[in-house]
Simulated scan of single mutants.
Amino acid sequence: MKIIIFGGTGFVGLNLAEVLLARGHDVTLYDRADLPPSAGRALADHGARLKVVRGDITDAMGIDALIAKGVDAIVLGAAITAGDELERVSTARVLEVNVMAQIPILLAAIRHGVRRVVNLSSASAYGAAGQRFEILDEETPCDPVSFYAISKFTSERSVARHAELFGGDFLSVRLSAVFGPWERTGSVRDTPSLQFQILAAFGRGEPATVPGSGMKDWIYAPDAAEAVAVLLEAERPRHRLYNISCGAAWSALKWGEAFAALHPGLQCRSAAPGETTSIKLHGPDRAPLAVARMANEFGWRARFGCAESAAAMSGWWMKHRENV
C-alpha cells in the first residue's frame, strides 16, 4: 500500500514507518520536523519507498494535493502531547492540531477514495475513569479531564462521525503508555516516558533515581507499530476503536534495573525520601487497558514485556544513544 503518516518523523511515526517499510509498503512521512539524521541512516536501505514531506498539519490545501496523488491509507499521528505546562501556554493549539486539523484530512480522504484512515488516540481519553475501574475496555465510559485527553477523545468521536456521515473506513486506536526507539522531547511533547528519562540519566553518566515504581501497562513502540500495521492491512475491521497495550501493568523501575544490569556501571534505583531527582512521573496511575478485542479479532498480542523490551532497547541504545 501507499501510506501517509501525518506526524511521521515523530516518535511513534518513526516506529510505524520502520514496521510498514519492512512489510513492503510505500511510506510518506508528513511532518513539520526533519527526519532525524540517525533515522535517515537507519531507513536508507528502503530507498524510494520512503518519502519525507515537510509541511504543517494545518495546511489543508497542501495536504489535499498530496492525498490527491494517490493514497491507500492514512495514519493520523500528528499531535501535541501536552502535560500541564504545555497546556497552559498552548491550549488553543492543542485543540487545533489534535482535533480541528484532522477534519480537512478526513474530507480529503473521502474525496480521493482513501481505503482506510487510522487515528492514533491515547489511553488518556479514559481520563478519570482510569481510577474507577479495574480494567479499561473499549466500552468503558470515558471521563477525560486534561485538554490533551479531551482532544484525543474528541478526535475519536470526530473520526467516527465522519465515517458515519460519509461512509469512510475510519477507525481509532487508544495507545497505552508508549516508550522505546526514537523517543524524544520537543516543543510539541513535554511528557517523556520514564524509560526515556532513565536512559537520559544514563547518557549523562548519572544514576537514574526514579521517584516511584512507575507502574503502567507500558507498550514497547515496535509492538504498538505492529498493531497499527495489522489494522491498516486488515480487510474489514469489525470495530471503530481498539485498545493497544501489553495488557498488564509492570514497573518502569524494574525495567531500568533490568536495563542497567546489561551495562556494568549503570545504576537505576528508587529515589530516597526527600532526594531530588530530574526524573518526573506524568499523570496519575490508571487501570490497564483490555486487549481482548485486538487478540480475538486479529490474534495480535504484544511481544515485549519488561525484560524483553529492556534487552531490545539496550541493543538499539548502543547504536543510537546520541538520540537520547
Rank of each mutant, 00 (worst) to 15 (best):
P211V: 09
V117D: 12
K280S: 02
A260H: 09
D45K: 15
V12Q: 02
E85I: 05
Q267H: 06
W250H: 05
Y126R: 08
A295P: 13
S270W: 07
P237I: 10
E164C: 14
P211Q: 13
E139C: 12
D217F: 01
A78R: 05
A208H: 00
I63S: 07
D72A: 11
I198H: 00
P192R: 04
S176L: 00
Q102G: 10
I67K: 12
L35S: 09
A249M: 07
V117A: 14
V118G: 05
G274K: 10
A78K: 02
L281F: 12
R54A: 11
K152T: 00
L241F: 06
D56V: 00
L120V: 12
E297P: 07
S124E: 02
K2V: 13
E85Y: 06
A60Q: 08
V89E: 04
L120K: 14
A221P: 11
A33R: 05
A48V: 11
V27W: 15
S309H: 02
A310G: 01
A221N: 03
R161D: 01
G77K: 12
C268E: 03
H46D: 13
G47V: 08
N98C: 07
L262A: 06
E134C: 00
V230N: 11
G47M: 09
L86I: 03
T154W: 09
E18K: 15
P104V: 01
S278H: 08
D31A: 10
T191F: 04
C306N: 00
G62F: 14
I110R: 09
N98D: 03
R286Q: 07
L231V: 10
C246Y: 08
R111M: 10
L43W: 02
G62I: 09
F202M: 03
I150M: 00
I110Q: 12
F179I: 05
T9G: 03
E164N: 11
